[in-house]
Simulated assay, not measured.
Amino acid sequence: MSVDLPFVTKVFAALFAIMNPIANVPVFLSLTEGASDAVRRRVAVTAAIGTTIGCLVSILGGQAVLDAFGLSVDDFRLAGGLIVLTIALSMLQGSSSPTHGRSPKEKEDAVEAESVAIYPLTIPLLVGPGTIATLIVFGQTARAQFKWLELAIGVGAFLALLSAALLSAPWLGRHLSATATAITRRLMGMILAAVAMEMIVASLRALFPGLSH
C-alpha cells in the first residue's frame, strides 16, 4: 500500500506552523527561567505528553464534538480556517495571536516551573484553538479518504520533533538568535496562511456548490 506523502507533508507542515517548536523555545525558557535542567526536562516531558493527548482527543473525538453541536465538518473547516488564518497573519506581523494564546509574562515567585507544563505551555500555547481545529479537519479527511496511516505518520513525526525541541530548549536557547526566530515565525506564517486558505476555499465550495462552477 502506497503512502500519500503530500498529505503527510501537509499535516506535518500545518502542525509545525501552528505549534512552531523553534518560536516556542524562547517561551519555554521564559516559563522555566531559574529552574534546573532536571526540572526543565520534567516540564518538557509533561508538555510533550499533554500535547500528544490533546492531539489524539482532537483527532478521534472531533466528530463527536461536531455531532453534539449539530455541526458539519465543512462548518468547522470554515471556522477553523478563519482561526488559523488569524494566527498566520499575526505570525507574519511578528506577534502572537490572541486566538492561539498570549506570550507569557514573567512568572511570579510563588509559581513553580512544573506548574506551567500544562497551562499555559500545553494549553493554549501548543494545543490552542488553531491546533484543535486543524486536527479535527485532518481527522475528518483521514476518515473520509482512509488516510489514517498518513495522518499518524505526519502527527507522530511532528510530535517527535516537538519533544526533541523542548528537551533541547536550554541548548537551543544559547544558539538561536532573535533574528532567526523572527524569520522562522514569518516563514511559518506564510505556510500556515496557505493551509488556512485551502481550508476556507474547500469549505465554501462544499457549502456553496455553485462556487465550483
Rank of each mutant, 00 (worst) to 15 (best):
M1P: 04
L5F: 07
L5R: 06
P6H: 06
F7G: 02
F7E: 06
T9A: 13
F12R: 04
L15G: 03
A17L: 01
I18L: 08
N20M: 11
P21E: 03
I22K: 11
A23M: 07
A23G: 02
A23L: 09
N24H: 15
N24W: 10
P26S: 05
V27E: 04
S30C: 10
E33H: 14
S36F: 05
D37K: 15
A38V: 15
A38M: 03
V39L: 13
V43Q: 03
A44H: 04
T51A: 15
I53V: 13
L56P: 10
L56K: 09
V57R: 11
S58T: 12
S58H: 08
L60I: 02
G62R: 00
Q63P: 14
V65L: 15
V65T: 09
A68V: 04
F69N: 13
G70N: 02
L71P: 01
D74C: 00
R77E: 09
A79Y: 07
G81V: 13
L82A: 08
L82F: 07
I83C: 07
V84Y: 08
V84G: 06
L85E: 08
L85G: 01
I87A: 06
A88C: 00
L89M: 11
L89V: 12
S90G: 05
L92F: 00
Q93K: 07
G94M: 01
G94Y: 02
S96P: 07
S97A: 12
P104S: 07
K105L: 14
A110Q: 14
V111G: 04
A113Y: 03
A113C: 08
E114Q: 11
S115I: 03
S115D: 10
I118Y: 11
Y119A: 14
T122W: 00
T122Q: 00
I123L: 14
L126I: 06
L126R: 04
V127K: 00
V127Q: 04
G130E: 04
T131G: 13
I136T: 04
F138R: 01
F138K: 03
Q140V: 03
Q140E: 08
T141F: 01
F146H: 09
K147T: 15
W148A: 05
L149D: 12
L149K: 14
A152N: 13
I153M: 11
G154I: 05
L161Y: 12
L162G: 05
A164D: 11
S168L: 15
A169C: 02
A169P: 05
P170L: 14
W171N: 15
L172Y: 00
L172H: 06
L176F: 13
A178T: 15
A178Y: 09
I183T: 14
I183N: 09
I183E: 04
R185C: 05
G189P: 00
M190P: 02
L192I: 03
A193R: 02
V195D: 10
M197F: 08
M197I: 14
E198R: 00
M199G: 00
S203K: 00
L204K: 00
L204G: 03
F208S: 02
L211V: 12
H213W: 11
